[in-house]
Design a binder for these strands. Structure first.
Length: 420
RNA sequence: GUGGGUGUAGCUCAGUUGGUUAGAGCGCCAGGUUGUGGCCCUGGAGGUCGCGGGUUCGAUUCCCGUCAUUCACCCCA
């Protein structure tokens, strides 16, 4: 495999020309959705002050504890490659006084994010996210709008068999009570739970509900549920969101065990799971983060958003037969014999391209056979031949590659002939 | 961070109970057709058998180490 002196670092990869058609497909769908919902693009730096993520994402999260690409720059400042978008969006929102804008402020981002993890199927150290945020509004109708964008995006891409998981994880008023119930419940069963859960109990109790170990399942079964501890406001919020979803005929699963890995979430959280991409099946995750602004020194500013993993979306598209795409091919491919013929081909190519018709030329000095082989490999629709006869008669021979038929066309009529 | 799998041609992989010139299919290049692709036929290019060490008369094959890669756990997009 390796030929040269270097290969790409672990966990990062090249997105090759043959795959670009899928990426473009996803980008097109994204553009359509954001325009339809009135979201505007915000481009952020790829790196930020390390402190932004430590505080914004949360010290106790896996991202901060073990997954950040952090380094000192030449000014001895600690810099981190963004592991997610939301903290950066909030920083930018505060820094640029976006609270002066109409609320909610609707923003989206597209770009690379970085997490130092062991690579596996669907997991990379550099990957691409489409990220959406709406700030300044607590209305559950906004939660619905954000989720609708996710549904809509996957509809637009032709996905089938997706699973939407939603939950409410409460707010600073009701979650502490739940925490307490949960931890005291687990403390009594400390010796029956797995070692991971024993540390979770201390570090991140909500995660206890997420454990997949066999031995913990019976304990999760009868554990206290967040749903029973939600305050009136959170309960109403969740109920209203669900009513919107039901009215719209959107399918979802209420998953009381889904808690999400970032500290800033409040109330609504959701994930979207896809098939055919390995064990890492989440293609989208998000939720509400009503307390984040204050954590970052801004004034209270509720918000909700999600991030969709473009790499995984592409993988899932490629895994679904009916969504397979082929790379683009030129309309016309010129093959020539002799210097004069090539000069004429170059002139005609300019005309075609100016008319919006994609055209290519066989370079070098090769036999017609070799040039035709190239034309075939590039899957051109028409191969256009210019040899001695054509040059003299001021016409070209146009071969339709799929029908294997050919016709003589005067130079002056070529654009019209191909364009029709 | 933990655990398993795999490293032989550009790609997918055979192979050698350790033996001298390492194979296939696909791909690539050329010819069969000095103006025509896809099919077919013929030929050609291309390999430090991941790297280092050990055992051996001899290692691609056995042993150790190492690196890379891959899948999974943790967690997430």
């Amino acid at each position: 495999m390796a030929k040269g002196l270097f290969q790409s670092p672990k966990g990062v990869r090249d997105i090759l020309p043959e795959d670009q058609v899928y990426w473009r497909r996803v980008e097109d769908a994204i553009r359509k959705i954001v325009d339809l919902y009135g979201y505007e693009r915000l481009d952020l730096p790829v790196f930020e002050d390390t402190g932004l993520f430590r505080r914004g994402v949360g010290e106790a999260t896996d991202i901060v504890e073990k997954e950040m690409y952090t380094f000192k720059d030449k000014g001895d400042k600690s810099i981190t490659l963004r592991p997610e978008f939301t903290a950066g969006v909030m920083r930018s929102f505060i820094q640029n006084s976006m609270d002066q804008l109409p609320k909610p402020t609707k923003l989206y981002n597209i770009g690379q994010v970085f997490r130092y993890e062991r690579p596996q199927a669907g997991r990379f150290r550099q990957f691409y996210q489409f990220n959406v945020e709406a700030l300044g509004e607590v209305d559950p109708a906004l939660d619905f709008e954000i989720m609708s964008m996710a549904y809509h995006l996957y509809d637009e891409l032709g996905f089938e068999n997706l699973s939407f998981q939603i939950n409410s994880i409460g707010c600073p008023h009701c979650r502490p009570g739940f925490h307490e119930q949960l931890t005291s419940y687990y403390k009594q069963r400390f010796n029956d739970i797995c070692t991971d859960c024993q540390t979770r109990l201390d570090k991140n109790p909500l995660r206890l509900l997420d454990c997949k170990r066999e031995q913990c399942q019976p304990i999760i079964e009868v554990a206290p549920s967040m749903a029973d501890c939600l305050c009136d406001e959170c309960r109403d919020h969740f109920k209203t969101l669900r009513r919107y979803l039901d009215d719209a005929g959107r399918l979802y699963t209420v998953n009381h065990r889904m808690v999400r890995g970032l500290d800033y979430y409040t109330k609504t959280v959701f994930e979207v799971w896809a098939q055919g991409i390995g064990a890492q099946n989440a293609v989208c995750g998000g939720g509400r983060y009503d307390g984040l602004s204050e954590i970052l020194g801004g004034k209270p500013m509720p918000g909700i958003g999600f991030a969709a993993g473009i790499d995984r979306i592409v993988m899932s598209l490629q895994a679904q037969d009916h969504l397979k795409l082929s790379r683009p091919a030129p309309q016309a491919f010129f093959v020539t014999q002799g210097a004069g013929a090539k000069e004429q081909a170059v002139r005609l190519i300019i005309e075609l391209r100016n008319a919006g018709i994609s055209a290519m030329l066989a370079f070098g000095d090769r036999s017609f056979k070799a040039q035709f082989k190239e034309a075939d490999k590039r899957r051109t629709r028409f191969t256009i031949v210019i040899g001695e006869g054509e040059l003299e008669g001021q016409y070209v021979t146009v071969k339709n590659m799929s029908e294997s038929s050919q016709e003589n066309v005067p130079w002056s009529e070529l654009v019209e002939y191909i364009g029709k």
